[in-house]
Design a protein around this nucleic acid. Structure first.
Length: 658
DNA sequence: GTAGGGTTAG
């Protein structure tokens, strides 16, 4: 990735005579982000007959850490081993770090244990390696050995460990590292504080991040401190907070940089944030940030997430250079919109360009297929993933389980699920949700029991899936059981979706009053989803009184959404209350509500067919609607038969009771 | 002029 657009120094013809001149140019290249250039300079230097010294190798190793390239690390390794400086502590520490950054933890550790002398930097390099690979037990042993050998951890140790454990998203770990640092009395400089801000924000506690930020002296704060707070807000999709910090940093006289713009843009992820996103875009242009590929990628992502896919595409088309991320953000822009045809076209274009799709690219395609039920494309992507060795990845497998379940192929989903050697909680949760969606309620609940038996801890999403199974299956008692279990046994406070499932369950059973009481007792504010669930139940049970109350809550919350009006009108109509129907019509007119016709999508042989309520202009419409009419007829017959059987049973029952 | 350090895109 081009980080600095201009390279005056590096494009000159270089012909130095002294080693220190070569070293300076190599260091310059590394510091400017031109790792490959540094290696080329090294080769030129050797060609010119100048031998490297003990200063050369640490520079080279650092260059290699920046590109994280296995081959480069091997080349540097062989040069170091041939040189007289292979036992120098500076050189060796740089090599340990290089291996760590090139994902060669074994090589790093082998070198580390062979070092005859280690200083705090050497320990930090290896600790960081084990921390980011998730070997926390080894980290704690090494930390013990380090202190035992008389070397005290310093602020770099703490920063490395904090960053290393971030992938766990464990607030507990970050807090314990924080208190460890205070305990051993490390010097909390602005760099350490910045690390903590980012760490707390990433682990979900923006409040603590803010506490750390406020503790830094105003004059000590750097642009990174501000960026970290802005990025923290972005983690919570809080564009209001992000812009607030941005305004403050401008007032304090800071000059925003690339990270500031990227973080600000990534806080805009919903249509309401589009205007804000456009403003930040213009600030980015003024600052010259739009020359950087990562900023443009973020812009493309911002526009598509805010619903303006056309602007995203315009920017994407104008890019002279693209990375895998550029393609991925644009592909997922279309996939999230449900336009899988365009997503696939771009995917093919990406391959034709020679850019290689990665895990995220595939994930957005797979989830897009699930969203619109594009089964055939989904199967094609499945085959593609198998031939590209991506199917071994657990995250990809989970995505396919979800996709197949959403496409109604629960058997394919199940087959995949059982083929996974080691299933994660996400695999189980996805499968439960899939069963719930496909009407296999007993299996969903069985899977839940198995999770608990395996000793896995269900999370709030697992509970949501289980509650959805209960709600779709009308299993009220089981629903209460899970609802109680999540709060009491697992200490998970129910979110709005969990409450929504319970309301749905009560509503389906006709317990409308109970459902309403339940809503009134909720500790969180009911949203449109909850009221909508209850209104749906009022429609089924033809309850005008509660329906009126509920629909008015919905009219307040979302006055322009047509569905509640239509449902309430239906309730009135089912009771012959034509005055009510008329009143709803008037209300819709005065609130300027327009009912968009319902659409149904189906994919056959890769082609998407769209059906709307008003139009019957499909080329094979005659046949399709004839078939639908015949199905309807069958359903009506079946229903009649059922009710006559029920009547028979009832009369038999009365016969025997009398 | 050497090694281990802060923020940052999907």
């Amino acid at each position: 990735m081009v980080k600095h657009p201009v390279t005056p120094l590096l494009n000159q013809f270089l012909n130095f005579s002294t080693i220190s001149q070569w070293n300076s140019s190599i260091r310059e290249a590394v510091n400017h982000g031109y790792a490959h250039k540094a290696l080329t300079l090294f080769r030129q230097m050797k060609q010119n007959g100048v031998e490297p010294n003990n200063w050369t190798f640490p520079f080279l190793a650092k260059a290699c850490t920046k590109v994280s390239n296995f081959k480069c690390s091997q080349i540097i390794h062989s040069h170091v081993m041939k040189s007289p400086f292979w036992s120098d502590v500076f050189v060796q520490t740089a090599m340990v770090d290089m291996y760590v950054k090139c994902n060669q933890l074994d090589d790093a550790y082998n070198l580390f244990v062979r070092m005859s002398m280690r200083d705090v930097a050497s320990w930090n390099a290896i600790l960081h390696g084990f921390a980011q690979s998730g070997f926390l037990d080894t980290v704690s042993h090494l930390l013990h050995d380090m202190r035992f050998s008389g070397i005290q951890p310093d602020s770099v140790t703490v920063m490395g460990l904090t960053r290393g454990v971030l992938h766990t998203k464990s607030l507990k770990l970050v807090k314990s590292l924080h208190s460890f640092a205070i305990q051993i009395g490390i010097d909390v400089d602005v760099l350490v504080a910045n690390t903590w801000i980012a760490a707390y924000a990433k682990c979900g506690d923006l409040g603590l991040a803010e506490v750390v930020f406020n503790e830094i002296d105003i004059v000590t704060r750097t642009v990174v401190s501000w960026n970290s707070m802005i990025a923290g807000c972005a983690n919570f999709a809080n564009f209001f907070g992000a812009v607030n910090y941005y305004k403050c940093m401008l007032q304090e006289g800071f000059r925003p940089d690339l990270s500031t713009i990227v973080s600000l843009l990534s806080s805009c992820v919903q249509p309401e944030a589009l205007f804000q996103g456009m403003l930040i875009h213009s600030h980015g242009i003024k600052l010259g940030c739009d020359l950087y590929i990562c900023v443009v990628n973020t812009l493309v992502s911002m526009y598509s997430k805010c619903g303006d896919v056309d602007s995203a595409r315009f920017l994407f088309d104008s890019m002279s250079d693209r990375t895998c991320v550029s393609w991925t953000v644009m592909i997922s822009g279309y996939a999230e919109k449900g336009d899988m045809n365009e997503a696939l076209t771009l995917f093919n274009a990406m391959e034709a360009t020679g850019d290689i799709p990665d895990l995220v690219t595939m994930l957005s395609l797979i989830s897009g297929c699930g969203q619109i039920g594009a089964l055939e494309l989904g199967k094609w992507i499945d085959n593609y993933s198998i031939s590209n060795g991506l199917k071994d990845n657990l995250i990809i497998c989970n995505a396919f389980i979800d996709m197949y379940a959403k496409c109604g192929c629960i058997n394919d989903a199940r087959e995949l699920f059982y083929a996974i050697p080691v299933r994660s909680l996400v695999s189980w949760t996805t499968m439960i949700a899939g069963c719930a969606l496909n009407g296999e309620f007993t299996e969903a609940l069985n899977l839940f029991t198995q999770i608990v038996e395996l000793g896995l801890k269900p999370n709030h999403i697992t509970f949501l899936a289980a509650l959805q199974a209960c709600s779709h299956g009308g299993l009220l008692e089981k629903g209460w059981e899970y609802f109680g279990m999540m709060t009491r046994k697992y200490n998970i406070s129910p979110g709005v979706d969990h409450y929504s499932c319970m309301v749905d369950l009560l509503g389906r059973r006709g317990k409308l009053k109970e459902a309403l009481e339940f809503i009134h007792l909720m500790p969180i504010k009911p949203d449109a989803g909850i009221w909508g669930a209850l209104l749906g139940a009022c429609k089924v049970h033809r309850n005008v009184e509660i329906g009126e109350y509920v629909s008015h809550r919905l009219f307040e919350l979302e006055p322009h959404v047509a569905v509640p009006y239509a449902e309430m009108a239906n309730i009135y109509a089912s009771k012959g209350r034509w005055d009510g129907v008329a009143a709803i019509r008037t209300m819709m007119k005065s609130n300027k509500v327009r009912k968009s016709p319902g659409q149904s999508l189906v994919q056959v042989k890769g082609k998407t067919h769209i059906f709307t309520v008003e139009h019957r202009d499909h080329p094979e419409g005659r046949l399709i609607y004839m078939m639908l009419d015949s199905l309807n007829l069958h359903l009506k017959k079946a229903r009649l038969q059922l009710s006559s059987e029920a009547d028979m049973n009832r009369s038999e029952a009365t016969l025997f009771s009398s």
